[in-house]
Each structure stands twice: as C-alpha cells, then as structure tokens.
Nucleic acid binder design. Structure first.
Lengths: 136, 136
DNA sequence: TTATATGCAAAGCTTTTGCCTGAGT
DNA sequence: ACTCAGGCAAAAGCTTTGCATATAA
C-alpha cells in the first residue's frame, strides 16, 4: 500500500506552483532549501511515481535531461533549438478538441488504444531569434 | 569543409531503407555486418550531423535511448506504454496541413519562429492491448 | 598536403538500484 | 510492529570527447 510522504507532497506542490519545466536536479536543489536532507534519488523516485499516477507529465527534451510539468491542462510544448528553454503554448479549447479528436481517430486506425497525446514544436524563441539574426 | 564519408552514407541509406526507428546501437550492430570496423562513436557523430542537416529526425523515447527516423514525410509517432515500440501514423494530407497550420499560428502567437512540429501519442499498441486485458 | 572523419577507450552526464535506516499507518 | 519511503553511495545506461591514425579533397 502506498504511503504518504512529505517529500512527495513537496515535489508535487512545487511542480504545481511553478510555471516552468524544471529538471529533476533543478527541483532537487530548490527543495533542499525547504528540506536540506532530501536526496536526489528520492526526487527521481517520486517524479517517476507521480508520472505513473498521472499527476505530472514528463517532457523529453531534445537535449539535456528530462523535464517535468505540473500543468495537466492540454497545451503544446515549444522547445527552443538554441537555448533549449521550454515554453507553454495554451490552446484555445475548440482547437484543442479538434486536434485531440483527429489524433484519437488516427490512433484507432492502427488498432491501438489512445491514452494521451503531446504536441511538441521546435524552433527559435523570441530571444534567440534576435541573437541569430545578429550572429549570421 | 564537410567531407564525404562512407560511414555517413551507409548510416543515411540504412535509415532511409528501414521502416522502423532504430536506436544508435541497433543501427551500429546492423552496420557492422557491412563494415565490421565501424565504431559506435562514428554512428553517434553522424547521427547528430544528419539531424542538424535535416536529413533525419531524432525521436525522444519516453524510456530508453533515442531513436532515429529517416522518413521526413509529416507523420505522427505512436509510442506504446508497455513495449515502447514506436509506430508511424500516416496523416491524410488535408488533416496534416490543417494541424500544421494551426500549430504554426500558435507559435507565431508567442513571437517565436516555427521550424518543425512533432506530434507524439502514447497508449497501448495492438499487441500489448491484448496482453493487458489478460493480465488484469 | 592539409583538414576532417574514424576508431578506440576513457570520461561525462543523467538516472536507477541496493541496502540500511527512518517515517507513516 | 510492520511495511513502505528515504538517504547515501555505487552502478548502470546512454552519449560525448580526446587523441592518434586513416581518408577525402
């Protein structure tokens, strides 16, 4: 049977309150302020557990460590090809539903059971776009 | 200046000819048949180079090593939550264009420069769906 | 001939695991 | 009391890097 733990609660709350998409290590360093004895393994174990239970989302970055997201509302992740920052793109609900349905239908076409869809976009963010124009 | 290499040509051809999404290691073991002296570092180096030049696509798997895809036609990747196999879902061109445009517009809304979009779906594939029903 | 690519092995980074102790029920 | 979770350190897994040699231009 699954037990409550203060560490897991802290991790979940932290992810829910912050608007960015921290790596396990960023989260760990941050949580050390509130709980200096916390270990990195605990962070990884709980992040895995929270993903499985559907309370958070794991984001695979094109480069660097995985990132985690406490925002369960359907949205798109935009990753910058230069600074590798990840930004949220909120979807207007009608567009969301349309894309979601489309994707669900595609999934059924191959006989699979749909559970989740993620849309990733990449390109250059506002800041890096400017820098690139200067550099080249 | 970039030089031709037989290794890079083999890697690219192999990815273009196969229909699956091999990891660097799978590709490496396979290529050893044609070129026993090839090294894994060469495979990684060339895969990175081919991604940058836009000749292949890197797919981040939810678990396990990265996978590579020589198919540049717009399509969706479906990853099975159980066996972690990745399947292609072909998109009918009208649907593709609609989703692509929608996504492009979202990107412009945050002031970023769109370069590419990827849609990932996860769930249970045909084979694993059956096994899960038996197991539980 | 000159510069880039390779192959090997070592290093690096991220994540997982084993084991003993501590905390939740 | 009993069991699950945590903390630490070690191991594992994947990818990158340094360096001497081979190969393309």
């Amino acid at each position: 049977m699954k037990k409550y733990s203060r560490q897991r609660e802290l991790i979940l709350n932290s992810l829910r309150n912050r608007m960015d998409h921290p790596t396990a290590e960023i989260l760990y360093l941050d949580l050390k302020n509130q709980m200096p004895e916390i270990g990195i393994a605990t962070v990884y174990r709980n992040l895995a557990e929270l993903c499985e239970s559907g309370n958070i989302i794991k984001i695979k970055s094109k480069s660097g460590p995985d990132r985690y997201d406490g925002n369960l509302e359907p949205h798109i992740h935009f990753e910058c090809n230069k600074c590798h920052e990840i930004y949220d793109i909120e979807m207007q609900s009608t567009a969301t539903k349309r894309i979601e349905n489309e994707v669900r239908r595609f999934t059924e076409d191959i006989g699979a059971e749909y559970s989740n869809s993620s849309i990733y976009i990449d390109g250059y963010c506002k800041k890096c776009k400017v820098l690139i124009n200067i550099a080249y």
